[in-house]
Design a protein around this nucleic acid. Structure first.
Lengths: 263, 263
DNA sequence: CGACTCATTGACCAGACTCAACACCGGTGG
DNA sequence: CCACCGGTGTTGAGTCTGGTCAATGAGTCG
């Protein structure tokens, strides 16, 4: 979602996948973009925050071979839907996603935003069915990692096992923090915390921590934060008046990280 | 606030410890395990919903041998604290716990309640440090499973690996649902949902789904649900007036599950 | 250019919070 | 045995944050 660098700079390999996009199908096609070919983790800019983190070169190679390839997902299309059978995990290679939980009754809820290097789909493991929809916030590319192969590799490659468990655990911690936010923070604090979170994730990826573009709508942000879109808009305006940031539509510049944090 | 449990207090004989003061543990007094010996998963009533689920008998035996034994945690004492080094996972064998996330600034937040058969501590995997406090809601007993041994076993026993991944994923899904609750449900809906959740967990363990004792305070419930203790109290009173339940202090009887669900 | 989605801002209102008083309950100690 | 006490739970009154409804503006795409 948030990269300020040009797409091409991030995509590298993925760029040609984008270039060769087929005419947009009504439903996302699930076939691998590069069937058979490895996913080239070794050349991926996100390898240090992804599944391949802290692996030796030859283990990265094995992971690569397990990859089913890439898949492109166009803006607003779904990578998977709640109820779909769970078969693979996905790693965002380029672009960004939101995950949406839809209760039987009641409004749908955005449960997370995912950018390059993040893994999506871990909620599907427990009952072999995806528990949410994953929707692309822009034209995106994911690496497809069949779960049974990952399981097998985890039994053989200890660092991979460790990294995978770390990622699962990190998701638990992330959600626990989000629960805390939803449970006892004011609307202002939620928005400030959200912006700082985005900022930190940018920094971790080598992008600007203070200047970025929000890929999601105000409504998405509101849903994620448990407030209305009007409140998000008002809060951003207020922060702007106070000189904490500059906002123009989806473009955002944070002017005072400390003051935001003090909320 | 409360005195800490001495580290040396590793359990030798949980049954005896418990029998002397026990209020009403969900788990029947089972035969004591010798110190250092396995935890006797085979005879544990919770084996179906715990780590040993769907394991062959001899694999259960291996898991047993990996167990470091039991540990008792008395009412209001901590199993671990945020910041403690992560070394083991815990499975609640008897009693119950709450987990508390404490932000640098701001009020602490109850992130979960755990009863017999539940696993605690999975948040510690990602950076080898516990991210929350786990506090006993009553005198309790946990099985202690050193994490490095679990990792090793998961590389050898495929069904155990699968079960462990399921448990991690289930925690992610549980939290996602809780986020949804915190994000867009009214106070009444939150309380109703909470009660139905407790009810379902009791049912899954073979206890009464309609009649039980809440081990936590109104304040705990409120923190967990993102409302104040007064709101919890008022809502319970309202539900009682409407004939949906009968409440007397911590004792609760659900009289109309469907009507609660309709909230 | 029109149609649409998305964002901003204002006015009003209600659900939940805060503050406060009081009841209850189990334990403790005189 | 009773008085006392701290922690807990209930209930009421007043307040305010954030939701709802509505109008308008800005941006985008065919």
């Amino acid at each position: 979602m948030y990269e300020m660098l040009s797409k091409a700079e991030v995509l590298t390999d993925a760029a040609d996948t984008f270039a060769s996009c087929e005419p947009r199908p009504p439903v996302p096609a699930s076939r691998p973009a590069a069937a058979g070919a490895g996913a080239r983790c070794a050349s991926c800019m996100m390898r240090h925050i992804c599944m391949a983190a802290s692996l030796e070169a030859d283990d990265v190679e094995r992971l690569d071979r397990a990859m089913q390839g890439w898949r492109t997902v166009r803006h607003n299309e779904r990578l998977f839907r709640a109820g779909d059978p769970f078969r693979s995990l996905y790693a965002v290679r380029a672009g960004s996603f939101k995950t949406v939980v839809t209760p039987e009754r009641g409004k749908e809820h955005i449960s997370g935003f995912f950018m390059a290097g993040d893994a999506i789909g871990m909620d599907g493991i427990c009952d072999e069915t995806h528990a949410c929809d994953a929707i692309a916030l822009e034209d995106s590319v994911v690496c497809v990692l069949p779960y049974h192969l990952l399981e097998a590799l985890c039994r053989e490659i200890k660092p991979l096992q460790r990294q995978f468990h770390r990622m699962l655990s990190a998701e638990i911690v992330r959600e626990a923090n989000q629960m805390m936010l939803l449970g006892n923070m004011s609307a202002e604090q939620r928005v400030a915390s959200f912006l700082l979170g985005i900022s930190a994730r940018h920094r971790a990826r080598g992008y600007s921590a203070t200047s970025f573009v929000l890929r999601m709508t105000r409504e998405d942000i509101g849903s994620y934060l448990g407030v209305t879109l009007e409140t998000v808009s008002r809060t951003l305006s207020k922060f702007q008046h106070e000189g904490l940031l500059a906002v123009q539509g989806k473009s955002l510049e944070l002017l005072n990280l400390d003051a935001l944090d003090a909320r």
